[in-house]
């Protein structure tokens, strides 16, 4: 049975994500302890709310360095929504620095008729990868900020009117989903199951 540690920095849909992972057969722990992060086999960073508050919480609790160490050890890591956004160098939201595990910046979405981007939208694969085997799929989004589709780590993309965003990203063992797998019905179950089985090279 795969085991996952959800990094609890005080924000985020921790309960619904825990329940969704358990439905996929995972053993789930939730912790704000950097030592627990250091010992985890597999990590998730959930997210809801603003990037600045999320980063401040991760930095102040020593969780940011624990996540950077885990990435250096190639521990599989999946960030969801704001949890994806904090993986990058910077976010325009609150003009804050991120974890710097992926290169690029998070911007407010430009070209959408209405924001936030709330609802179900297509996730279309850009490359063949263990995490994209079930794509294309339709998943649930709730955000106004995103990384653009032309960044090197883009793994899947999603269009909102005239905007195209990276809806999944990956580099090495560090991956992110801009949508909420815990609220994306079958598409979410598939991504979480793929993540639980993922062995980054």
């Amino acid at each position: 049975m795969a085991s996952v540690l959800i990094v609890d920095y005080g924000g985020g849909n921790v309960r619904s994500l825990t329940a969704a992972l358990e439905r996929c057969g995972a053993r789930v722990a939730v912790s704000a302890d950097p030592d627990a992060v250091a010992g985890a086999e597999r990590l998730m960073v959930a997210g809801q709310g603003a990037a600045g508050a999320a980063m401040a919480a991760l930095e102040s609790r020593g969780l940011a360095d624990a996540l950077r160490d885990a990435a250096r050890r190639h521990v599989p890591l999946l960030g969801v929504c704001v949890g994806l956004q904090v993986l990058f160098d910077r976010s325009e939201e609150d003009d804050c620095a991120g974890l710097g595990l992926l290169h690029g910046s998070v911007h407010r979405i430009r070209g959408a008729a209405r924001l936030p981007h709330l609802g179900w939208n297509d996730v279309e694969p850009l490359q063949d990868h263990p995490l994209t085997r079930d794509l294309p799929a339709v998943a649930y989004f709730a955000h106004s900020y995103a990384v653009t589709a032309n960044i090197p780590s883009a793994l899947a993309i999603t269009s909102i009117d005239d905007a195209t965003i990276a809806s999944m990203v990956v580099r090495g063992s560090v991956a992110g989903a801009q949508f909420h797998p815990e609220r994306s019905a079958e598409a979410g179950r598939q991504l979480l199951s793929r993540f639980l089985a993922w062995e980054p090279a």
């Binding site: 849909n13 619904s16 329940a19 809801q48 709730a142 909420h180 609220r183 019905a185």
Partner: peptide, 26 residues
């Protein structure tokens, strides 16, 4: 496994925090 919006009688910020903590998405 789809989003959940909760409302009714939400009168202050702690109510919002409680409901989000309980698993409401909005």
């Amino acid at each position: 496994d789809v989003p959940l919006t909760v409302g009714g009688g939400v009168s202050d910020e702690p109510h919002v925090r409680d409901l989000l903590g309980a698993g409401a998405d909005k």
